[in-house]
Design a protein around this nucleic acid. Sequence first.
DNA 1: ATGAAAGCGCTAACAG
DNA 2: CTGTTAGCGCTTTCAT
Lengths: 334, 334
Amino acid sequence: MTLERRYVSSTDVARHAGVSQAAVSRTFTPGASVSPAMREKVLAAARELGYRPNLLPQALQTNRTGLIAVAVGNLHNSFHAEVLQKLTESIQATGRQVLLTKVTSSYAIESMLDQIAGYRVDALISNLAVLSTPMAKRLSELRIPVVCFNSRIKTEWVSSVSSDNRSAGVAAAELLARSGEVFAFVDGMAESPSAHARRGGFQQGLERLGRNPPMIVSSDYSYESGQAAAEVLFDGKTRPDSVFCVNDHVAFGLIDVLRRKGLRCPEDVRVIGYDGVTLAGWDAYSLTTFDPNLDAMVELTLKLTLGETEEGRKGVLRTIPPLLIERRSTGAPA
Amino acid sequence: MTLERRYVSSTDVARHAGVSQAAVSRTFTPGASVSPAMREKVLAAARELGYRPNLLPQALQTNRTGLIAVAVGNLHNSFHAEVLQKLTESIQATGRQVLLTKVTSSYAIESMLDQIAGYRVDALISNLAVLSTPMAKRLSELRIPVVCFNSRIKTEWVSSVSSDNRSAGVAAAELLARSGEVFAFVDGMAESPSAHARRGGFQQGLERLGRNPPMIVSSDYSYESGQAAAEVLFDGKTRPDSVFCVNDHVAFGLIDVLRRKGLRCPEDVRVIGYDGVTLAGWDAYSLTTFDPNLDAMVELTLKLTLGETEEGRKGVLRTIPPLLIERRSTGAPA
DNA sequence: ATGAAAGCGCTAACAG
DNA sequence: CTGTTAGCGCTTTCAT
């Protein structure tokens, strides 16, 4: 009924081995000077008692917990799950651990910040669509270095890593303009910098090619909102024949509605997504998409998080070029 | 370049407010007795300095960190992402936090245990396919209470919550036997208790109905292994017309290969999955599946984790009945 | 190389 | 109600 357990302490081990507590500590400290004999004695005692050094007082002493908070929103979109997965692996590879924080509403951000600040995390990686500016201010009060994934916030304590959304938008325009006449962009939410850049690039690309500007409908990045977007786009007089969606999930919803309406993809409508999720490669959709190069993004994010870049801790804004993957949804053979 | 930051301490606040350190501590302790005047003074000082109580020494003192470790394997399967999501939400709702631990290989389990033991987590929830018995022993040495998700391990320190896989298997047999003649089961890996029970129930159900036993091929739960299973099943002389897959992702892979071979689902082959993932409900597959009732599973898991059940901390084995959702893949209208 | 002792920032008696 | 004091289990001087 109770959670009471007492973990074995270094003092317990010291007593058991008949040595000082400091000796135990040294045995478990990588660079410390202990004689082989002593080390053996201590390790034996530790093994017998099932001792693991307690990282809490260690953190208290050294002022570093080895905990990195990772804030996520919704994991329904497999892209976000993938990001979390890779971040976690990389963080663990450095010997640190992930404090996972799921943020439900943007109002909940404040209290989650207090929570993770309480655990004295070494840094925070935010995988949230938006982390408002007042929030960034609060963070600097707490003195927590932050790196945002797919955002563009930048303050003294906040850096951001994002996909090169704008140039991807241009590339999408170029690909679709090869065979299309009427264009559409399924947007994300107003506050999202990624969606904004994708749209901007798409519009600019079409303009440069002398094409008509795209129709715009918005979405909330979900499958369902992709379906809703399709209902709007393919109901009126002028139907688009080329659609760039803000992400893959929206494209899936759109395509499913297209099919239900008897429209074929790619013959009647070409579709491009964004994120390069696994499902996009399956036969069911074979969706052309932008692979954001997650490995590179994650690696850079971690470098910035640990302050291992030239710029050190100063907030920076970095961009990773995505890779266009052409599939059947835009007429590619395979 | 350095991660050096010093968080504001209660002593800092006390000095700033001209009161004792204990007064600060009390102000931030829910049930403590502090005068309104004192509380105000302290809170003002805390606000000015951006103070958040440090949970590390608190944990050191009270012997409870408020951290629950959640071990996950691969999040590629959206079912696991969903589980993680719900677990995290529930844990955070109790004011606790999640220490996310991704385990890559089963060999890595050992070192991950040491890590999380170091953080003195209050409990561990394992969402891994397998947590071997020697591992369970190691856990009891460390005195960490464990609850396994979808497993059947049970020791003094380890409890398990799982879907009622066996009766689901029986139900799958009953549904498929309505229109089928030749049955197949796409199995999971040998060590998995869930897969074993699903298969056992399916076989038993068919036998009771006087049907032939199913053909069996195995998979590793992935989409790709579902494809491979289909290549095997639909290549020989006798083709199954009714397939029960160990999970949804395997079913997706199988269905994609079916289609490529020109076989129609459900006309030529009826397919059932397991997990009730979101994608199973999309038009692209419309897959009949078992919804394991995640909410109930998560709730029970958390109750056991926090030792809030009648049994208290003793290891127990509990089962949640899943819900069969019939869709087009077995001939249901919608 | 080892032990003794101080201190990290908190909680929890114990006085007053 | 408030301040003082003693730890929680480590790391880290400082002696030896």
